[in-house]
């Protein structure tokens, strides 16, 4: 334990409105603490720089999974365990359930929240590639109002997001339009469980015969933020997967991905490996569409 806990303040405002009022009063002063699976690690290692924290873990109004005709709405305080146990998510958004299942261990899934995973903004986080592939939107709330932003526009840089200091991520909205889509996700971690991604790819594609009619790709650890792979998508859209075209399609897609990949060397892997394996995963997905 490398922090003096007496130097930190943590309060639990009674309601969401109270949290928003506090944030509005002194924007930037307070940091939200949900499941604690990130910030408490920083506390233990002496790296937690924020000294005034607001606990939102107890706010029931942020912990929900709502289903309407067009979308599933997930409260930011929903835990990974909640996501895994949700029949609606498992049925409509299987990649979501899958990525929740390999976020940390069971104990961490019981505490960690989807909102925390998004706002912590790690480029290696497990759920963002899925949200990018599914085209999620985020509902952000503050004392002065509510706004909705496409998730693909949320991450602005390394650990930088579009969230204003007085705002809180309220809901993650995921369209329920993937019934006819082929879906793929693969995480390459340091080991099979309790692992941080070296690279991960989530993909959804709609086929019209052997033509790719729609495609969306999200990746982890391929850039300084969770990244939608637009160049690879562009290379694939409307391409044909028949025997005559498949190899060229794969090559173009790999080239597209390579052009937009900006992975790094770090303690867990190398940039070269990440780029190459991302290409392999993409190829694995494309070839799986042929079957």
């Amino acid at each position: 334990m490398r922090s003096d806990v007496s130097q930190f303040d943590l309060t639990a405002p009674p309601s969401l409105d109270a949290v928003l009022a506090t944030l509005a009063k002194e924007p930037g002063k307070h940091t939200l603490l949900a499941g604690g699976t990130e910030l408490m690690v920083a506390l233990g290692t002496g790296r937690l720089n924020q000294h005034s924290l607001l606990s939102i873990q107890h706010l029931r109004e942020l912990r929900f999974i709502g289903v309407d005709d067009s979308a599933i709405h997930i409260g930011s305080g929903t835990t990974f365990t909640d996501i895994r146990r949700s029949k609606a998510i498992t049925a409509d958004l299987p990649l979501m359930a899958q990525s929740a299942s390999w976020t940390g261990s069971v104990a961490n899934q019981n505490r960690g929240t989807l909102g925390g995973n998004i706002c912590n903004a790690s480029p290696a986080a497990d759920t963002p590639p899925v949200l990018l592939a599914y085209g999620a939107t985020l509902t952000l709330v503050s004392a002065s109002g509510t706004r909705t932003v496409p998730y693909a526009e949320f991450h602005l840089g390394y650990k930088k997001t579009a969230l204003r200091p007085d705002e809180l991520l309220h809901t993650i909205n995921v369209p329920r339009t993937f019934a006819g889509y082929r879906q793929y996700i693969r995480k390459v971690g340091t080991r099979n469980a309790q692992a941080i991604s070296k690279i991960a790819l989530a993909a959804v594609a709609k086929l019209d015969g052997d033509r790719i009619a729609d495609i969306r790709l999200g990746a982890a650890s391929l850039a300084n933020r969770p990244a939608r792979c637009s160049a690879a998508e562009a290379a694939l859209l409307n391409q044909r997967l028949d025997a005559a075209n498949i190899d060229a399609t794969v090559r173009a897609a790999r080239a597209g991905l390579a052009s937009e990949a900006k992975p790094i060397d770090d303690i867990r892997s190398t940039a070269k490996y990440r780029a190459a394996v991302a290409g392999n995963l993409l190829e694995e997905f494309i070839r799986s569409l042929v079957v």
């Binding site: 340091t190 080991r191 469980a193």
Partner: peptide, 16 residues
Amino acid sequence: MMNNQMTNYIMPTSAD
């Protein structure tokens, strides 16, 4: 040693 944490020194878990 740069990876002196259990998160970055990878020992096998029950799933490995």
